[in-house]
Amino acid sequence: MPYLLVAPALVSMALLLLYPLIRNVVLSFQQLNRKEFITHETVWIGFDNYTALLGDPDFWTVVVRSVVFTAVNVMLIMAVGTGIGLLLNRLGKKMRLVLSLALVFAWAMPIVASVTVFQWLFDEQFGVANWVMRTLGFSGYEQHNWFETGFSTLVISLLLLVWGSVPFVALNMYAALTTIGSELYEAAKMDGANGWRTFWAVVFPNLKPFFLVTTFLEIIWIFKAFTQIYAMNKGGPDRASETLPVFAYIEGVGQFHYGVAAAVSVLTIVMLVAIMSFYFRLILKQEEQL
């Protein structure tokens, strides 16, 4: 009976996840460019796509960019989300409700709509960012193009991703804080601990599994983020703001190199699995200590 009950979920996962994954791996061993796509010809080339990628400096530039972009994003998301979660725990009921609703609204906003808002904020002619910089007395911000370089484009994408991901961390942080007994805070207060010391001595040890799991989830979500970066500036200018998912999409759909794009996707999955194995070891070690 248990196997019968979980069978529909397993079949759905196999159709929606396992088959596309297997199909993607198969494509990564083929030469599938514009010609093969039109003629429906299957050309097996073994590991050529992988060797070409691993020997391509542009690919490694994108890998480094993706790793750094993910690391900075996750650190900011966890720091800001934790701070807002602590704030929610300290606020009264009315202000907590107002802040919680604001977080939920930000979290629920469709991605393309939020990208459009950020594009307007950093617009050359009517953007709020240029107006703020001019108001503060900075020169050179008359119709300044914030999307002129890949770095500035990634910074704007980073702000968007942080803004959209903080609510998840903050709300879950607040929920986790409710599991800590008030007597622990009282004991820390009697020992003369300030807020910072209380966090490291009381909050962090009790919520260590929460921080591990949440950080792990954020790494996955940011590392595979596509819509926010592609919709912001299509990986430009000159492909200077591409991360691995955007790089795979442009190589496949934009350049008609579907075999190469499949290989990029497989390598991305391998990187995520390596990160997952590291965090799973930490979580298992944490469970053994409990």
Rank of each mutant, 00 (worst) to 15 (best):
I22E: 07
V72G: 03
A263S: 04
F37R: 15
A7H: 09
A175P: 07
W221P: 05
G127M: 05
A108H: 05
I275K: 11
Q289E: 15
F226T: 01
D123V: 04
L160H: 07
G85Y: 00
V98F: 11
I156N: 00
V72K: 03
V169P: 01
S165I: 07
Y258T: 05
L76R: 04
V166S: 04
T82A: 00
E148N: 15
T149V: 08
F126K: 15
K234D: 07
T82Q: 00
L4S: 12
I111F: 14
I222Y: 02
Q30A: 06
M173D: 00
Y230D: 00
P8L: 07
F47S: 09
L5W: 14
S12K: 13
V64S: 10
L272C: 03
F216A: 08
T149L: 11
P57T: 03
L32Y: 12
F147D: 05
L10Q: 10
I111P: 11
E41D: 09
P205F: 00
V266Q: 06
S277F: 14
L91P: 02
E218L: 03
H144P: 09
R65S: 06
E142Y: 13
A274P: 05
H144V: 08
A14W: 04
V253H: 10
Y185T: 01
L177G: 02
L207V: 01
V273Y: 03
P237V: 03
L27F: 10
Q31E: 12
Q228M: 05
L15I: 01
S139M: 12
F247Y: 12
L282W: 09
V43S: 14
W60F: 05
V112I: 08
G140D: 06
A240V: 00
V213P: 09
A261M: 04
V203F: 05
Y185A: 01
A201I: 11
F138L: 15
L91I: 01
F126G: 12
F199D: 00
K35H: 15
L121F: 10
M95I: 08
F105A: 10
L10H: 09
I22M: 10
F138N: 13
E186N: 14
V213W: 07
F47A: 10
T198K: 10
L88V: 05
G254W: 06
M75G: 10
A261R: 01
L154F: 02
G259C: 07
F211D: 04
L217W: 06
A129W: 05
E36S: 07
K35V: 15
F204A: 11
R281V: 09
L290G: 14
M1D: 13
P167E: 04
